[in-house]
């Protein structure tokens, strides 16, 4: 049974982690969660990023957040990746499977998957 005591344990654990967190290069993964994104299937995509980033141990380096309509509704679910010193990468028509691939190749390996980007979709 889930208890509040477990949350207290999480708090204890995090005390030591705060110091480690500083100074790491941050990557932001932003999932479009407006009506268009949600209707197109953004929830499992978001879930795949939240789960996958943690499973791959990227939690200190990568944050996963949500935003409203990015303005390209026909390409939803849309995911944007921001990394300091690099151009923003926009992935379109995302699925949970593609998200796992982006985590593996892009977030871990540093290699953009051109095939899934908006640049590829409109060219």
């Amino acid at each position: 049974m889930k208890s509040l005591a477990e949350l207290a344990a999480i708090r204890e654990k995090m005390k030591d982690k705060v110091i480690l967190r500083e100074g790491t290069g941050e990557i932001r993964v932003v999932v479009g969660m407006a009506t268009c994104g949600i209707a197109a299937g953004a929830r499992p995509v978001l879930n795949a990023f939240v789960e996958g980033v943690n499973k791959e141990g990227l939690g200190d380096k990568v944050t996963v957040s949500q935003t409203g309509c990015i303005g390209v509704c026909q390409f939803e679910p849309v995911v944007e990746i921001y990394e300091s010193g690099k151009d923003k990468v926009t992935y379109v028509k995302m699925t949970a499977e593609k998200a796992a691939e982006v985590i593996e190749k892009h977030l871990k390996g540093g290699k953009v998957i051109g095939e899934y980007t908006i640049t590829n979709a409109i060219s």
């Binding site: 889930k2 949350l7 207290a8 999480i10 654990k13 995090m14």
Partner: peptide, 19 residues
């Protein structure tokens, strides 16, 4: 109620989300 126990730990911490 969760925040009262968690203090500074944000609700979007992965362990908290899983909880």
């Amino acid at each position: 109620e969760l925040k009262a126990v968690l203090g500074d730990v944000p609700l979007n911490n992965y362990d908290v989300i899983k909880w």
